[in-house]
Structures are given as C-alpha cells and as structure tokens.
Amino acid sequence: MKIEMNVNGAARVVEASPYRRLLDVLREDLRLTGTKEGCGEGECGACTVSLDGETVNSCLVAVAQCHGRTVKTVEGLAAQQGDKEILHAVQTALVRCGGAQCGICTPGIAMCAADIVERELLHDQDLQQARVMVRELLAGNICRCTGYQLIVDAVIEAASEVGLQRRERASRRTP
C-alpha cells in the first residue's frame, strides 16, 4: 500500500506491505541507515525513533501505522544552517563525554536522550536524582560498551546545557 509520512521534516511516500516494520522501511526504502537493528524484539532500543513525538522501537511498528504520522530519526536530530550542521546538544555531549564507543546503540540513545533533554524531564532534580532518572528513562536502550557511566554523564551535561540556554534566553526577554 501507499504510505505517506513525514520523515525528518519532509513528506515521504513509500509503497510497502503494511506489515513491514518501520525499521526496515526506514533502512531499506528510505536508506536512513542510522536507525539500527539490535534484536528485533523491542529489547535493545537501537532502533528507537520518534513517532508523533514519542520515542518508540521502530522494530515494533508496522509501517502502515505511520501513514499520516510524523517520524524523526537520528538523521533528523541535528539542525542544518545552510551548509553547516549544528549538532543537537545530546550529540555534542555524547562525543565530548565519551558516551559513544562502538556506536551501534548510539542513535537510539541519542533519540531518547534528546527526548529527555527537550522535555526537561530532569528539571529541578538534584544531581543524584537526575542520574537515577536518566537510568530509568534510558533503561530501554542497551549498551554493551560503556557500562553506561559516560552516557549518563553526557545526558546530564546536555540537559544542563539546554537548561542554561533556555534560562539565558528567558532572562534576555525579561531584563
């Protein structure tokens, strides 16, 4: 069937069996290979994308379910300013803090971390609470390289960075 969806801000049309996994259509038909398959059973989170604003496992989404909906993948996380790519705060923090090693889980983790940071889910938490919250919120993303420590560091850092920027913008508006 013909499926129309908004992918990373652009309208896309694919012809696909309705039962195919969103993961496969993204990777094979749209060649958005940043979304990875680690298990095919919704355990590892490597295939995480955002569907209508919620992070989901794209291996557990039938592509027909995306007709008329909005999908964002890791390829859509950074902003484009002319020729220049402006990485999302979580991408920058993951690189700086050493939160990516082999990198196969990284796109999924970046998607979930971006969700945490953008929704300001760590707002008003002290550092220890924030670390515990990050661990719960990212529990659907398995990483076998890092032991998670440096990823938690990166998410905390990105959240502080984004929070700081928001506060600065707010204080500029109300001098």
């Binding site: 039962y19 996994r21 059973e41 919704g42 209508d52 496992n57 291996c59 557990l60 989404v61 027909a64």
Partner: peptide
C-alpha cells in the same frame, strides 16, 4: 487486532504474516 504492537510485532519478520490488520492505534 493491532494497537501498539509491543507484543504482536515482536520478531515479526519471523512470524506468519497476518491476512489482515485492524489497526486500533490512536
């Protein structure tokens, strides 16, 4: 009968393809 697919679509590439899908999601 499909909603969020978190059970029915597990390992779906290795499961029998259904004859039809009644999508109740949202």
């Amino acid at each position: 009968l499909l909603a969020g697919g978190t059970d029915l679509l597990v390992d779906s590439n290795h499961r029998k393809v259904p004859v039809g899908m009644l999508d109740l999601w949202r």
